[in-house]
Amino acid sequence: MKTSWRRLRQIEKFLTGEVTQMDSDLFRARLDRDEDLKSDLSVQRQAYQVIRDYARKQVQQEIAAIDQRLFNGGQSQEFQRQIHRIFS
């Protein structure tokens, strides 16, 4: 069954601390007695991790592509000469 957007938003706000102390305490109290909510929170935490890992992989690939272009590409010969002088 799909989780409602309202519930997703509530969990997100709790996890990111965008709630008042009172709301946070109320949410914690609900967590203690609502196993479904506890499970939803755990899944949402994992979902954020999946998103971050995906994004990080994208950025790593972007950096690797720039590295390749600068060290192997024909348009950055001045940079390559500069670095070669350091290691020669």
Binding site: K2, T3, W5, L8, R9, E12, V43, Q44, Q46, A47, V50, I51
Partner: peptide, 13 residues
């Protein structure tokens, strides 16, 4: 954004 987040949650589950 929440629709997409739900898809990732489904994937995790």
């Amino acid at each position: 954004k929440y629709k997409c987040l739900e898809k990732v949650r489904e994937h995790v589950k």
